[in-house]
């Protein structure tokens, strides 16, 4: 009697075990399937545009819904330029913040400042966009833009970069707001990798009489270089795909201008503005092709970030 009930128990548990294991495996496979479905759906939708325009789609800057001629050069250019600005401004800032939190801040201040910086990531991008358009852009146009133009006006190379009416909106403003948005992401990774540096390394450098800066620059940074670059890549991925904040402030013009103060476009802002209004298969397909290109770019950037961060993870 006892024996049979134990066997049925065991049997039932074995069935439940395999059911549970199957459910988890199915869920994991679903995640994989979803990402594959995204790639396939985008590639399928984009195929018409690629058939029609071929590789020229990537280099043509024409974007004309009336004649149905489309090229992705302008939005790709805008995406890369705004992200580059975001990185140029965001990396030093993030590095400074991480340095402050890990090396300088008194212990009681670490947590509140760390949390505050992380809250920058919690603010929805549409809020950045509203604030950027209604508050930051006018302030920027009144105070900073004339000053920048004044300072760079005598330098021929730079003048071209910063010319044009000070409107407040444009690619530079978009890049600047993206820089603020990526700070929490890059800072978080730099903080994490800074803390894995063995205390012995730090202390021996200090023991030799190094200043805090020398310890950071000559000991900590070389030790964590790969991880820092990985963090930067994660931030870059964010900047490349950011939509709403950019859509508010970039001005949405389908053209390539040499000046950073002129309105432009990014892949994501073009999608946000035009996707629901696109008429005709070619137009829609061209926008889907833009989406596929954006997905591919962020994929490559993420893969590099994972590779670098994975490598440093192995060293912990």
């Amino acid at each position: 009697m006892m024996d049979t009930s134990t066997t049925t128990h065991l049997k039932r548990d074995r069935v439940r075990d395999s059911l549970f294991r199957g459910a988890t495996r199915l869920s994991a496979a679903t995640v994989f399937g979803l990402v594959m479905a995204i790639v396939i759906a985008l590639a399928f939708g984009a195929s018409l545009a690629f058939q029609k325009f071929g590789a020229g789609f990537l280099v043509s800057s024409e974007w004309n819904p009336v004649t149905e001629q489309f090229g992705a050069a302008a939005p790709i250019y805008g995406t890369l330029v705004t992200s580059a600005i975001a990185m140029l401004i965001g990396i030093p800032l993030s590095f400074g913040v991480a340095l402050f939190i890990t090396e300088l801040s008194p212990v009681w201040l670490k947590r509140p400042i760390g949390t505050a910086v992380e809250l920058l990531a919690a603010i929805p991008s549409i809020i950045y966009g509203m604030w950027g358009l209604f508050i930051f852009a006018p302030w920027f146009a009144d105070n900073l833009q004339p000053w920048i133009q004044d300072k760079t006006g005598s330098l021929p190379g730079l003048r071209a970069l910063f010319q044009g009416p000070p409107m407040g909106i444009g690619m530079f403003t978009a890049g600047l707001i993206l820089a603020i948005m990526v700070i929490p992401y890059i800072t978080a990774v730099i903080r994490d990798v800074f803390t894995i540096v063995p205390t012995e390394l730090r202390e021996s450098a200090y023991g030799l009489g190094a200043t805090t800066w020398e310890v950071v620059w000559h000991v900590i940074l070389p030790y964590t270089r790969i991880g820092v670059v990985g963090g930067i890549m994660l931030g870059l991925g964010r900047a490349l795909g950011e939509t709403m904040a950019v859509t508010f402030v970039i001005g949405n013009a389908q053209r390539i201008s040499s000046s950073l103060f002129m309105p432009g476009n990014t892949i994501s802002s073009a999608l946000a503005n035009e996707f629901t209004e696109a008429v005709g298969d070619t137009y829609t397909s061209s926008l889907l092709a833009l989406g596929l290109i954006l997905f591919m770019i962020t994929f490559v950037v993420l893969a590099i970030a994972r590779l670098l961060l994975g490598r440093i993870g192995g060293r912990i």
């Binding site: 995204i38 795909g241 999608l271 946000a272 997905f295």
Partner: peptide, 13 residues
Amino acid sequence: VLLSAPSIVIGVF
């Protein structure tokens, strides 16, 4: 990849 995919791409999908 899904975590870092731009949310607008998810919308389009």
